[in-house]
């Protein structure tokens, strides 16, 4: 039993600091975050008291692996087109071949992610678009088309 539990208080699980403290020792806080600790920063002068988390990118990417993509690929008998539905982002492609539909879907994904990030203020205020945020974040870490393709259709 330590001092906190003896006093009936909640253990401090995170490191919470003000902007002023953050500015004073950014290097130390960066090292803390790189060691795996979440550093939460707040603006003491701000009315809404919103906070921001500083977290190691590799750990964030590990967390985001829980948000996997499951594209549905099928042939439409009437139009004889190959369709691919990516329900996670509400994006749909259809073309004469699977290869064309795949490339179309990747184009749609790239355009959508770019639009989403440019207009975060809008999308984070629309409930069914806000829930796409982890998927958007995951794709935004991809460096190129091939990586996006592996993420959507591979085993990532």
């Amino acid at each position: 039993m330590n001092d906190y539990t003896r006093r009936g208080e909640v253990l401090p699980m995170t490191t919470t600091i003000s902007i002023a403290e953050f500015r004073k020792d950014m290097r130390k806080l960066l090292e803390m975050a790189l060691s795996g600790r979440e550093v939460i920063c707040f603006d003491a002068k701000s009315r809404d008291r919103e906070t921001c988390s500083f977290i190691k990118t590799g750990l964030l990417q590990d967390i985001l692996k829980a948000y996997s993509f499951k594209p549905v690929v099928f042939l439409d008998d009437e139009t004889m087109t190959h369709n691919i539905h990516l329900d996670e982002l509400k994006l749909y492609a259809y073309a004469d071949t699977v290869e064309e539909a795949t490339e179309q879907l990747i184009d749609l994904v790239i355009d959508y992610i770019s639009d989403y990030i440019d207009r975060l203020g809008l999308f984070l205020n629309v409930p069914d678009r806000k829930e796409q945020y982890p998927y958007v974040l995951r794709i935004s870490h991809c460096q190129n088309r091939d990586e996006i393709k592996r993420l959507l259709f591979g085993s990532n």
């Binding site: 439409d76 009437e78 139009t79 087109t81 369709n83 539905h85 749909y92 259809y94 179309q104």
Partner: peptide, 12 residues
Amino acid sequence: VHVEGRDIPSGT
């Protein structure tokens, strides 16, 4: 853009 003008398949 490549499907502009094409009928939209039923599932989509």
